[in-house]
């Protein structure tokens, strides 16, 4: 299996290196990385021992996914790749569909892991809103697989760097003009990377209690995350902090869930956490299924006590 990997983010690309090597262990073949107009990332990946192709485009337009797909496609053809590994972040997912269409291949996004089945990889992803997990195999010669961020460990620095070579591509003029990039300011957290998470659910009913949850997070050295309605309906947080099917998939060492009912669309985002401790009054049946430890009680009275205990 000839595998190439690409992500605009070096940290995610290095996770793809790990995943790619694991697939090679199953199917054999070669693994190569590509970077697009990003020499810094090329060096970063080469240091991880992988062979890197620096794609040089004649008219780079990184916000134009059609161009991006064209660049990756030309590279895939030139390198006779069978499988293209991408990161399943937003940019990666958008690229995946267009690239698969260009290649006439099958595509899976949000793949969390894979196993070996009849000597080839079978990929797992959530379906039916997270109620079930599908295991799927690709039937096409060409395939595009986008992996959920942080599902695989980042590849470490190798003893010897991989080779770096240049690969020019020709692109048609871009139709998409990037007028401005606005960084997401103070709230640009990456809850996917947090070791410890305090997750706020709708069982926390007012801002005072929310402040207490934040205090607990500070005491524990945790990031605060939330369920979808807390961000979209109550607007207490930006969407960056949403855990779940349409939010982030997190695998912290410890997650403390406060007032989370445990609907399946949420639980898919926390399923892989190390330990899950929950405090909740509502819907015991669901949350008990999700948590390792559950304290049943009224958050209004429990929160002040927890604040005191954890700050001590």
């Amino acid at each position: 299996m000839n595998i190439i990997l690409y992500s605009e983010r070096p940290d995610l690309a290095s996770e793809l290196v790990t995943a790619g090597r694991a697939i090679m262990d199953i199917c054999g073949g070669a693994l190569q990385a590509l970077t697009i107009d990003d020499d810094e990332q090329a060096d970063f990946l080469a240091a991880r021992g992988v062979s890197v192709h620096r794609v040089r485009s004649d008219q780079p337009s990184p916000a134009d996914v059609a161009q991006l797909a064209s660049a990756v496609h030309q590279t895939a053809v030139a390198l006779e790749a069978d499988m293209i590994l991408l990161a399943s972040n937003r940019r990666g997912r958008e690229l995946a569909g267009r690239l698969a269409q260009k290649l006439g291949g099958g595509c899976l996004t949000d793949v969390g892991r894979f196993e070996v089945l009849d000597g080839r990889p079978a990929f797992s992803r959530n379906a039916l809103g997270g109620a079930v997990e599908d295991v799927r195999c690709m039937e096409t010669g060409k395939q595009v697989i986008a992996l959920t961020p942080h599902s695989f460990a980042a590849a470490g620095v190798a003893t010897g760097p991989g080779p770096v070579s240049d690969l020019p591509v020709r692109l048609s003029p871009s139709l998409v003009r990037l007028k401005e990039t606005i960084r997401k300011g103070a709230d640009a957290v990456d809850i996917e990377k947090a070791d410890i998470l305090v997750v706020v659910g709708q069982g926390i009913e007012n801002k005072e209690d929310l402040t207490k949850a934040a205090q607990i997070a500070r005491s524990l050295g945790a990031e605060v995350a939330c369920t979808k309605p807390v961000a979209t309906d109550r607007k207490w947080f930006s969407e960056e902090r949403i855990i779940g099917l349409s939010g982030k998939r997190c695998k912290p060492r410890l997650a403390l869930l406060l007032g989370v009912s445990g609907q399946v669309q949420f639980t898919v985002g926390i399923r892989d956490a190390g330990a899950i401790v929950a405090v909740n009054l509502d819907e015991k049946a669901n949350i008990a299924y999700v948590a390792d430890y559950l304290l049943v009680g009224d958050l209004k009275t429990l929160l002040p006590e927890l604040v005191k205990r954890f700050s001590a």
């Binding site: 079930v132 799927r136 039937e139």
Partner: peptide, 15 residues
């Protein structure tokens, strides 16, 4: 292009 081999609810290993 893609074949679904199985579709099962995940088993919770939570305590």
């Amino acid at each position: 292009p893609v074949r679904t081999i199985s579709r099962l609810a995940p088993v919770s290993s939570r305590l």
